[in-house]
Simulated assay, not measured.
Amino acid sequence: MAGKRTFRQISSVLLHIFVTLFALLMIYPLLWMFSSSFKDTSEIFVNAHQLIPTHFKFSNYTNGFKGFAGISFSVFFKNSFIITILSVVGTVISSTLVAYGFARIRFKGAAFWFACMMMTMMLPSEVLIIPQYIFFQKINWINTFLPLIVPSFFGGAFFIFLLVQFLRGIPRELDESATIDGCGVFSIFIRILVPLLVPPIITVSIFKFYWTWDDFFSPLLYLNSPKLATVSLAIKNFSDPTMQTDWGAMFAMSVLSLVPILAVFIAFQKYIVEGISTTGLKG
């Protein structure tokens, strides 16, 4: 018994060492970026292996926040928050309503339409770029936030599937009891099911927040004016091939761009686990 206990202890220690080293390997790029945000531009790539700066240059944050072309970085943060928050709201409302229809309302062709919806997940986004751009150009939405926000109000296949699986795990007896008490279809949805859908709704919100906040290609495609640029697009604009790039300020703004993501994750991480782990379980 003593030998087995010793073996388990050694195995546990080795496992913790391996996990710690792997975690450090995964987090090293973030540590390097954070360290570089306090370095002078001339030092960043010369002493790239050195995480602790020789001289801390806190002015990188003030210089970076000044932005470029006379536009403060606060404008870019505001643009990103507007696009992200409205996209999250649109995705949650539309995806929840569609999921409720698929999971709870019986209608002709439900299985067929659900299959069509699921097949859109296999459609490469590259296929849609040109048709969508032409469509948005025809209705004069280019160089506005509308192409980045309005599509979110038509749901997302992945989020609808996630919510449908959760709804299927909620007993239908709740709906029947509410119907006996005089609730209609919409009342059942608002009063009975939405409170039970809080964990997956928060999970959907977090994922949509991450994906929209980090999106670089869509703002690059639809936004031409510097005043409308998002944070990801503005950080890219710090790199100027025609002149010397202020890498210190660029990394400083990159660090600040991670603050909302980290804040959301820390505040709602328990809902991510709960929303995913309970999806698809039968009640």
Rank of each mutant, 00 (worst) to 15 (best):
M1I: 08
A2T: 10
T6L: 14
T6P: 08
F7S: 12
F7C: 08
Q9H: 07
I10S: 07
I10E: 05
V13S: 11
V13C: 11
L14V: 11
L14S: 12
H16Y: 14
L21M: 15
L21W: 13
A23G: 10
L25N: 09
I27L: 15
L31Y: 10
F34P: 12
S35E: 04
S36M: 05
T41Y: 10
T41N: 10
I44M: 01
V46R: 09
L51K: 07
L51Q: 05
K57E: 15
S59F: 14
N60Q: 07
T62G: 06
G64N: 01
G67T: 03
A69Y: 12
S74V: 09
N79V: 00
S80V: 01
I83M: 08
V88G: 01
V88W: 00
T91C: 15
S95P: 02
T96K: 06
T96I: 06
T96L: 11
T96N: 08
T96Q: 08
Y100F: 15
R104K: 11
I105N: 05
R106H: 10
R106N: 10
F107D: 06
K108R: 13
K108D: 12
K108Y: 13
W113K: 04
F114S: 07
A115C: 10
M117H: 07
M117W: 07
M118V: 12
M122I: 11
P124S: 01
I129T: 13
I129D: 06
P131E: 03
P131H: 06
Q132V: 09
Y133P: 03
K138W: 12
W141S: 08
T144N: 10
L148A: 04
I149R: 01
F153I: 03
F153V: 04
F154H: 05
F158Q: 10
F158E: 09
I160P: 03
F161D: 05
L163T: 00
V164K: 02
F166S: 05
L167D: 03
P171H: 06
E173T: 13
D175A: 07
D175M: 07
S177V: 08
I180L: 08
I180S: 03
F186P: 11
I188T: 12
L193G: 07
V194R: 04
P195S: 01
P195Y: 04
L196W: 07
L196S: 12
L197K: 00
P200W: 03
I201L: 14
I202V: 15
I202W: 06
V204N: 01
W213Y: 05
P219V: 00
L220Q: 12
S225L: 04
K227Q: 11
A229C: 08
V231N: 02
L233F: 03
N237Q: 14
F238A: 03
F238S: 01
W247L: 14
G248I: 00
G248M: 02
G248K: 00
M250W: 04
F251I: 05
L256K: 04
S257R: 02
S257E: 01
L258H: 11
P260Y: 01
I261T: 11
I261L: 15
L262A: 13
A263G: 14
A267E: 08
F268A: 04
K270Y: 13
K270S: 13
Y271Q: 07
I272L: 15
G275I: 03
S277E: 06
T278P: 12
T279E: 09
L281F: 14
